[in-house]
């Protein structure tokens, strides 16, 4: 049995009256790429927030590397997060800093590297997402897709062993989508980094995923390898994968 690096255990979470996750359980296998699929608003981003300790569940537990985030102090959470990369759905770059400073920030704060070394790493990371020329730009000068790639670069620049990607390829052209998908796979191979990827792009999911989890009405209704999920007998999963309007999913 493969090692589990993070786990949601019967998690229930609501925003006000709206219950988003209902007794949701999910294992994230170490060194693997786990893709989460599901309808818009299903609570996928919420799962990533739980895994990073940015939200705590109302009921249930979230374990990361064996520790329950519900019982961690803020300082322990901060320590944990330095080893987790998070690429946000809308990039969330700091708009008061240049792109270069944004991506240098975790290195400046958490390592004792010299400015020259940091610059070298940052330029290299930016280059790997095709953004080397934007080092001195402010985030407001970048397009949506460029912001997204810069956010991606910031999440992976410290080589974390667990990276959470929230829709890393949504809204990008096919070539860049391919580039980022390759980057996620390469990081997994080179550093045996674990990845949790939220994506609506079935093509790139089939390309990279080791495991796929489908979220529906607050719980994981299907989990397995790509082939297993594709062969699922669950009509909800089938309807979702085929993108059909007719079926059990209420629109």
């Amino acid at each position: 049995m493969a090692n589990v690096i993070a786990r949601l255990d019967d998690v229930t979470l609501s925003y006000g009256d709206r219950v988003v996750l209902k007794k949701c359980s999910l294992d994230v296998v170490e060194g693997a790429i786990t893709c989460i699929i599901g309808m818009s608003g299903a609570g996928k981003s919420t799962i990533l927030r739980l895994l990073d300790g940015l939200r705590k569940p109302d009921v249930g537990h979230v374990y990361v590397r064996g520790h329950d985030i519900c019982h961690m102090r803020e300082s322990e959470l901060i320590e944990m997060r330095t080893k987790i990369g998070f690429a946000f759905q809308f990039a969330a770059l700091f708009d008061s800093m240049t792109v270069g400073d944004n991506i240098s920030l975790p290195l400046r704060e958490h390592t004792s590297l010299s400015e020259d070394e940091i610059r070298e790493i940052v330029v290299h990371t930016l280059d790997s997402v095709g953004l080397a020329h934007t080092y001195d730009n402010m985030p407001s000068e970048l397009s949506g897709g460029m912001l997204k790639r810069a956010g991606f670069a910031r999440a992976v620049v410290t080589n974390p062993d667990l990276v959470l990607y929230d829709e890393p390829t949504t809204g990008l052209d096919p070539i860049v989508t391919h580039l980022l998908t390759d980057t996620i796979k390469r990081l997994r191979q080179q550093l045996s980094a674990t990845a949790v990827v939220i994506s609506h792009d079935l093509q790139s999911i089939y390309m990279m995923a080791d495991y796929v989890a489908m979220l529906f009405e607050g719980a994981v209704i299907e989990y397995g390898t790509v082939e297993e999920v594709q062969r699922s007998m669950n009509p909800i999963v089938q309807q979702f994968l085929q993108g059909s309007e007719v079926g059990p999913i209420p629109l």
């Binding site: 927030r49 803020e74 901060i78 944990m80 969330a92 700091f94 708009d95 920030l105 704060e109 910031r154």
Partner: peptide, 14 residues
């Protein structure tokens, strides 16, 4: 509202 505070926290910064 632009998730920059969460981004800061996700980088291990208070």
């Amino acid at each position: 509202v632009t998730e920059q505070i969460e981004a800061l926290q996700s980088l291990g910064l208070a």
